[in-house]
Design a protein around this nucleic acid. Structure first.
Lengths: 309, 309
DNA sequence: GATGCTTACGATACCCGTAAAGATA
DNA sequence: TATCTTTACGGGTATCGTAAGCATC
């Protein structure tokens, strides 16, 4: 048994049992992949995969049980490597952050610029992704930190902490009649609406609020990010509902937020980490730049619950 | 990085940084051990050991942190192997039980004979050991199950379950005057005593009881097991204090237990397992033969707390 | 016929152990 | 001096990739 064999087993599942794809992802040959799987199965005396002829179809029962252990081993070895980097190059290395457009565009810029000042040698990788993709990146170990409002709190394998709270704002062209009216869900429902895609930036909360009020709304368009939404609102296609911070500190001349108390429930952007993932020292600093009360100790306690010190 | 390197790191600590000993234990050459350590340190870019000249003295800071991860990796790989055996040879294999003399001699025989009937092909290895040694065997992965009254409950890395409760008995030669007296700590303290070694079979409870009563006692001899104690009690060297089950079902003609309510607090023999250690199916059966209410589900829950099913 | 898996085989790198030299107590 | 660690070096093995053959869709 060796690490390459374990990597291959894990990647075979991730690549839907296509060994050619596995070989490409792991930068090796298909023949080697094939042989490694055979060798491991021989050594363990168990068939890890269900086959149909030569093709692999799925994990066998023992294969399923094994996969969990394999993933733990590989998680630990990646932790070992990061731990070593932490000591060999304390303030150098890579920090990989997976986040949504909203956070990357409106919440993170000040954090990131302060972080870069503190750790100029750390290479920042910003994966922009959907909340679902972001979860996958964290679970695969391809990202150290995930930041999003959606999805992350519901995944057991992730630890997450509140980052900040925010509300949705309603925006309309500067000359729109809504600016003169008292804003309510009812009045809003009279206009065609433009807002986020399903699963993005609190969209579910918006739907729920209208549903609860028994209102049918006409969402003429949905987009991934506030910039796109603002563009189409400016064109007069409808009234926009976007995250409030997407309007702050911006001098949009064509559209304007409607001044009114929030119509939709408070949202919480969260910072998420894969349970058991070893974080470099500067990663803890990054998190503390986001939320000053999240100290390294507090995070570690949640991340590595079995550590007893 | 490979498994052999990790094994060597772990074993180096266990062998007090004597690489020659490491090589012997791992059945390889000292030169290989030396090179593997160098290679790993090079790859990680960190010195894992503190050296004085050529000799290794201790773990460095990163080495200490690394060790925990290394041990998890090796624990998981041994779990992988056992899991594979579980499927490839369901009712064959090895079950390694570490236990004290008292349990091996008086409590386990019926359990073991029933187990052997149920799993004739399983090779039973009975490590007889002191409670401290028993803990080490469990933590090293050299034993699957530990059974003892002492020590195991105090170790965080072990999960333990109550097996059965027992009391100490006072024994004396058949013609001893104590048989006619009312038994109390005071009367007992008038005689020279023979009992277990420190750290064995509830000895600490005995000391504590006399201390609490403000009594000074003359322990003329201490031994590891009840058989030895009984022998010297029969010779008239003193009054014995042994585990009650060491007198049951035995036709000792020269010594006899004194009929009286128990003088010392109740003791609990416990079944202990290393947290995270994968147990074969028959190991769960063994435990259930000891204590019928300890089902596989209940034990698994404690052993692998992170599993979410 | 296109894609995917396996076998054969040669080149390379890796791992191990012996022997000898160098450090340390 | 005895014990321990490291370096040098040779033999063996494992791993990898190319190429070709074969199965599957």
């Amino acid at each position: 048994m060796n690490f390459q064999q374990l990597r291959i087993v894990r990647e075979t599942v991730r690549q839907n049992f296509n060994l050619t794809a596995v070989a490409q992802v792991l930068f090796t040959s298909a023949s080697g992949v094939s042989k490694h799987i055979k060798d491991l199965e021989n050594e363990l005396g168990v068939e890890l995969f269900i086959r149909k002829g030569k093709r692999l179809l799925a994990l066998s029962e023992p294969g399923k049980e094994l996969l969990g252990m394999v993933e733990r081993v590989l998680l630990d070895t990646s932790n070992i490597k990061r731990l070593a980097e932490q000591y060999s190059q304390r303030d150098e290395g890579q920090l990989s952050i997976a986040t949504t457009h909203t956070q990357a565009r409106y919440a993170l810029p000040p954090v990131i610029s302060r972080f870069k000042q503190a750790f100029p040698k750390v290479q920042l990788v910003l994966h922009q992704a959907s909340p679902q993709e972001l979860v996958r990146l964290l679970l695969n170990g391809d990202a150290d930190i995930g930041i999003a409002t959606e999805a992350v709190a519901a995944v057991d394998e992730l630890v997450s902490f509140p980052y900040y709270h925010w509300h949705h704002s309603v925006i309309a062209p500067v000359d729109h009649p809504l600016h003169q009216q008292t804003l309510s869900l009812q009045t809003l429902a009279n206009y065609p609406l433009i807002t986020y895609h399903q699963g993005f930036t609190g969209r579910s909360e918006i739907d729920q609020a209208f549903n609860a009020a028994g209102l049918n709304v006409d969402i003429v368009m949905s987009a991934l990010d506030a910039d796109v939404i603002k563009t189409y609102v400016a064109l007069g296609m409808g009234v926009g509902i976007i995250a409030a911070m997407a309007m702050e500190n911006h001098h949009d001349t064509q559209v304007q937020a409607i001044k009114a108390p929030p119509l939709f429930a408070q949202q919480t952007a969260r910072i998420a980490i894969h349970r058991g993932h070893y974080l470099r020292g500067f990663a803890y600093h990054f998190i503390q730049l986001c939320a000053a009360d999240l100290s390294e100790d507090i995070i570690r306690q949640q991340l590595h619950p079995t550590e007893l010190i």
